Simulated scan of single mutants.
Amino acid sequence: MPAPSVAVVTDSTASLDPELAAERGLTVVPLQVVIGADAYDEGSAEATPERLAEALKEFRPVSTSRPAPAVFLETYRAAAAAGAEEVVSVHLSGEMSGTFESAQLAARQARNEGLRVECVDTRQVGVATGYAALSAADVADAGGSAAEAAEAAAARAAASSSYFYVDTLEYLRRGGRIGAAAALLGGALAVKPLLTIEDGVVSSLERVRTSGRALARLGDLAVAAAEEAEGPVEVCVAHLASPERAGQLADQLAERLAEQLDGREVWCTEIGAVLGAHVGPGMIAASVAPILR
């Protein structure tokens, strides 16, 4: 009996290049960014990282919004109409966004209509979610089921490490992604915070005095995570409105992790407007995703 055809869905915070997503057959559901009184789909011409960074610098009101369950349901129905027998839907941490909940609600309705949908809460954000979605696509391409693809995505996400530096904790505080006390403490000490994703939420990791030291430490943390993996890894450096510093870190990691990368390039990308709204201009992140066999 032939394996079922499996479609892979993710959301725009996975930070996948549109061409790569299309090449791998992934469907990307956009979150929305609200600038002033106007809401835009992430990835649209109106919701570019540049426009988002400009709005934040000008202290214009910026917020974000999850996709409605109806949007996911239509996505799942479209996958079925295109021939998919099952769907795996891979998303950012449910602790930080209602996106996963929307996917789950839509999945229940889709199952009532006869389409099996497996939802994955990666408990990650950004590129770590993207790597998980790509692992799901690998399994689907190899003829695996949606359940097997979901298991691969969850395992890849759990094995991944995400570290990031922000110029200020204020944007995370405004969005409710980190406690107000931490934001005030960071400002009072004029420190540069290093953060990580732990148990699906933003967690304070270390504090250093200068941005230069913060970026150096970010590199050390990424190298340690890659070496701990004891096998090949994929690495991404992401940023918002800081391409030069991100490029320098990516070059350094490419050199220091040449053996673990095994010929792969360090992916360097700018995050989208939704994640950018919560971290602010100047953010630099390093994600290390072990390649699981």
Rank of each mutant, 00 (worst) to 15 (best):
V8N: 05
V9W: 07
T10W: 06
D17W: 04
P18A: 13
L20C: 01
L20P: 00
L20N: 00
E23M: 06
E23R: 15
G25Y: 10
G25F: 09
L26S: 10
V28D: 01
I35K: 02
G36Y: 06
A39K: 02
E42R: 08
E42L: 05
G43K: 03
A45Y: 00
E46H: 13
T48C: 08
L52M: 14
A53W: 05
L56M: 09
P61M: 04
V62A: 06
R66T: 07
F72E: 02
L73N: 09
L73W: 04
Y76E: 02
A78G: 11
E85D: 14
E86H: 03
V87W: 03
V90G: 07
S93D: 05
G94Y: 04
G94R: 10
E95R: 15
F100T: 13
F100E: 05
A103M: 07
Q104D: 06
N112L: 12
G114C: 11
V120C: 10
D121Q: 07
R123F: 05
A128V: 05
A133Y: 06
A133K: 09
L134M: 15
S135R: 15
D138S: 11
A140K: 03
A140V: 09
D141S: 15
G143I: 08
A146R: 12
A146I: 11
A146H: 07
A147Q: 14
A154K: 14
R156S: 14
A158L: 06
A158M: 03
A159R: 08
S162G: 11
V166D: 01
D167V: 08
T168K: 03
L169S: 06
E170S: 11
Y171V: 02
L172H: 05
L172T: 05
L172I: 02
L172Y: 04
R173H: 09
G176C: 08
I178Q: 07
A180N: 13
A181W: 11
A183L: 10
L184C: 03
G187I: 04
G187D: 13
A188F: 11
V191P: 01
V191W: 01
K192N: 07
P193F: 10
P193G: 13
E198P: 01
G200P: 09
S204M: 10
S204F: 00
R207K: 15
R209I: 08
T210V: 06
L215F: 00
L215I: 02
R217D: 02
L221A: 11
A224K: 13
A225P: 09
A226T: 03
E227Q: 15
G231C: 07
G231T: 05
G231W: 05
E234R: 15
H239W: 11
A241V: 00
R245W: 00
A250M: 04
A254W: 00
E255M: 04
E255V: 11
A258G: 01
A258Q: 10
L261D: 08
E265M: 10
C268Q: 13
H278S: 09
G280Y: 03
G280C: 07
A286Y: 03
P290C: 08
I291N: 01
